[in-house]
């Protein structure tokens, strides 16, 4: 049983506060969707959990089974059982996914002798072309192939909690289904806990969320069941975004200053 607890998390970039106190708890086997409009802080949340350079932690805590995640280096967070599927997976010329998974398993004291078979099995599960296993990672891959690659690594590395940063962006319907089903299977087979960050509800057609959180302006504005996603589908984010006070409409320069008069239509 794993438990990722985020409490009062505040973080920013260049002195600008983006996350203004986030509280979330994700346990093994649970799927949490964090939904929000552009600029709400979704990607910042995923990056801060994994320790991407360039963010300042302004307050709060993140723990995994009580261990202080914010005190760990990124690779230690991964070895502790966190996984981040990136929205834009990075190209690393001359390095294959085989190299990466081998190095990751070795660093964790796990058996890396069967990586080839492991990756071939995982690739087959999500229809990822096995020729890509020994090529330069993410180089010349389509959006869908990149997301399949991320999902395959998730399958191979067997994390305890996975953060999916817009797994549904930039990929076609087939790839989306393959990836979402693989993650869903991991929650059932291996008790994976999932924090799925997304803008749209289409990911959640395949990957059924237990809890939906709405993130806007750096805060969780609402938390509920899957019905919350349905409501968003119908009404959008408008109800959660504080609309800036609108200035009164500018006067019409062609309007009759004495009013429309008795003959107005």
């Amino acid at each position: 049983m794993a438990e990722l607890i985020i409490e009062g998390l505040r973080a920013g970039v260049d002195g600008k506060e983006i996350l203004k106190g986030i509280d979330l708890t994700i346990r093994s086997g649970e799927v949490h969707a964090v939904m929000g409009p552009n600029g709400s802080g979704k990607s910042t949340l995923s990056h801060v959990i994994m320790g991407r350079p360039g963010y300042e932690i302004l307050g709060g805590s993140i723990t995994l089974d009580g261990a202080d995640v914010l005190a760990m280096e990124t690779w230690e967070r991964a070895q502790a059982g966190l996984f981040l599927a990136l929205q834009y997976p990075t190209e690393v010329p001359g390095v294959s996914v085989h190299d990466v998974v081998t190095a990751a398993l070795t660093a964790g004291g796990r058996d890396a002798s069967t990586v080839t078979a492991l990756l071939e099995r995982e690739a087959a599960r999500i229809n990822f072309d096995p020729r890509f296993l020994v090529r330069d990672i993410n180089v010349d891959l389509s959006g869908g192939e990149k997301k399949r690659n991320e999902t395959m690594q998730l399958g191979a590395l067997e994390p305890r909690i996975a953060i999916l940063d817009e797994l549904d962006s930039g990929l076609d319907v087939d790839a989306l289904r393959d990836c979402a089903r693989r993650v869903e299977a991991a929650t059932n087979e291996a008790g994976l806990g999932v924090l799925a960050i997304t803008h749209y509800t289409r990911l959640l057609q395949e990957l059924k969320p237990d809890v939906v959180h709405i993130l806007a302006q750096g805060e969780v504005k609402a938390t509920g069941g899957p019905e919350l996603a349905d409501e968003l589908e119908a009404h959008g984010y408008a109800g959660y975004v504080e609309v800036e006070e609108q200035a009164p409409p500018a006067p019409d320069p062609f309007a009759d200053p004495f009013g429309p008069g008795p003959f107005a239509v």
């Binding site: 994994m50 996984f83 981040l84 990136l86 010329p93 190299d99 990466v100």
Partner: peptide, 21 residues
């Protein structure tokens, strides 16, 4: 960061990246 986020220690990551370069 990408390699580290998979659990690869930074020194090993740098070696892979430079050899790949």
């Amino acid at each position: 960061f990408y390699l580290e986020s998979r659990g690869v220690p930074p020194t090993v990551a740098d070696r892979l990246i430079v050899a790949g370069f």
